[in-house]
């Protein structure tokens, strides 16, 4: 009765997320009392191969549990009802971080690891700036970086961060081995990624942070710690000699079914001096390229406007950081 004809929703239902179809319907879920999760079987494999075997065996009946900060509320509200959870938190291999120019983050590294590691924040300043916007401390203490990316909520911070960093998602399955998907191809729709039901996101590969590069990340939320109405991140690289922009990236959360790169707008800055006027022009183009929808928190017009405001703020922040 709460079904939805939207393609994304159909795909989600096929993957065991039965009634969650779109945000508006999530909010309409008043059909029956729901505060305890539906029954499911549970496995806690200790190796990646064991986990892949389970996913291979159970296919879209199974759902991967990492930190659970997105999945468990969906279970409690009975908006998701997988038959089986595969808890990957006890797979030691997935909890590792490798810093060696580029950054490799195992799928179960918790978000708080970034807050607690100056080294990691230095290695990737954008990650350091974006992570504190995720919920509140207790959420980040359990929530994983990989889990947030795999959940692919368009209002979440980390999918947009991956897009900005041009990160690569390493997927592995029992039958297909390992493949690497660039962020630009990973986020397909609302809560939908390129990962197949049998595939496990094992690692996030973040390219090395290049010299002369600065990051900015900001959000407008109704309350401190809420999912943002709109969030924006920017990465700007400046030529140390000329001060001209050599690379410019801009992405938004909360304005579509996926995080969105503003490719046309970000190109405008490359080869130019990042003046206030230039950034304002960039913001106007970024704003014009969006078609957000409205909801209980803000109208579509508000979201579009805020995307422009935040563009100016985060690009300036990134430029300042790059200098």
């Amino acid at each position: 009765m709460l079904s939805c004809a939207d393609d994304n929703c159909k795909r989600l239902r096929r993957r065991g997320v039965r009634e969650l179809s779109c945000r508006a319907q999530l909010r309409r879920a008043c059909k029956a009392a729901a505060m305890k999760p539906p029954p499911f079987a549970y496995d806690a494999p200790e190796t990646i191969d064991e986990a892949l075997g389970l996913l291979d065996e159970h296919g879209d009946e199974a759902k991967v549990l990492a930190g659970g900060q997105s999945l468990i509320p969906l279970l409690s509200m009975r908006l998701a009802r997988p038959a089986r959870l595969v808890d990957i938190a006890r797979i030691a291999e997935l909890g590792q971080i490798f810093l060696n120019g580029s950054t490799r983050i195992g799928a179960t590294v918790r978000q708080c690891a970034v807050e607690r590691s100056a080294e990691l924040r230095t290695a990737n300043p954008l990650l350091g700036k974006a992570i504190p916007f995720i919920g509140h401390g207790p959420i980040r203490n359990r929530g994983t970086i990989g889990g947030s990316v795999a959940h692919a909520d368009p209002a979440a911070e980390l999918p947009a961060v991956m897009l900005l960093l041009e990160a690569e998602m390493v997927l592995r399955s029992a039958s297909g081995g390992e493949r690497t998907v660039p962020a630009a191809e990973f986020f397909e729709g609302f809560l939908t990624t390129a990962a197949q039901p049998q595939e496990l996101l094992v690692e996030l590969r973040l390219p090395a942070w290049l010299p002369g590069t600065g990051a900015g990340f900001q959000e407008i939320a109704r309350r401190h710690g809420d999912f943002a109405i709109v969030g924006a991140g920017a990465v700007v690289q400046l030529d140390p000699g000329t001060g001209l922009v050599t690379d410019s990236r801009l992405a938004f959360t909360g304005v579509a079914g996926t995080p969105v790169r503003a490719t046309e707008a970000e190109r405008m800055l490359v080869g130019h001096e990042p003046t206030i006027a230039a950034i304002a022009e960039m913001a106007a183009v970024a704003r014009a390229g969006l078609e957000p929808s409205g909801d209980v928190h803000a109208s579509a017009a508000y979201r579009r406007h805020i995307a422009g405001v935040l563009t100016e703020r985060v690009v300036k922040e990134a430029v300042d950081a790059a200098r």
Partner: peptide
């Protein structure tokens, strides 16, 4: 500034979770 038990004109209810009905925190 934050709270609204929002309904559509036809009575569809839109603020059924604590992510939709916002009571202020210590920061507000």
């Amino acid at each position: 500034l934050y709270e609204h038990s929002a309904y559509d004109d036809d009575g569809t209810f839109k603020a059924g979770t604590f992510m939709d009905y916002l009571i202020p925190s210590s920061m507000e």
